[in-house]
Amino acid sequence: MKIQEITLYVNGIQYEFSIGNKFGQIPPGETLSQTLRNRLGLTGSKEACGEGACGCCTVIMEGDAITSCMTLTVDCDGKHILTIEGLADPETGELSPLQQAFIDRYAFQCGFCTPGIIMTSKALLDKNPHSTEEEIKEALSGNFCRCISQYHVVQAVSDVAGKAGA
């Protein structure tokens, strides 16, 4: 079956797209990262390596953290996607506990990889709110930071894991 239209739910908002090579349509070869950043203006997730190795483009799809640069948008038909822009309260602007913890712990340097790291951490804590330090490290092993923010990242995520449900 040839796919001509898809629906995405990004940060709770429904989007309908037409698939094709005409102007305004999403070509089958477009990645989720491109769609989020270029069409929806959600530039929080970054594209760095473009081959799924650095984790900067991480978003959450159906609860799982994935690299949006290695995902075809057309493959996401009907899926719920959460990006860094969907974490803060849309009305009050209040940051999510994870975002706040990253600020509290100063868990970033240049910040380029931070949205990806936060999204991976979010997916982890959603499934396993009381993650151990080891589990946090393992979950984040696909997110690279060149500024060596890792120590503070682990502290920030551990802070939230320790507080969860407490």
Binding site: G52, G55, G142
Partner: peptide, 9 residues
Amino acid sequence: VATPLIRNM
């Protein structure tokens, strides 16, 4: 295999 992000796909 690879990273947790890739294993999710």
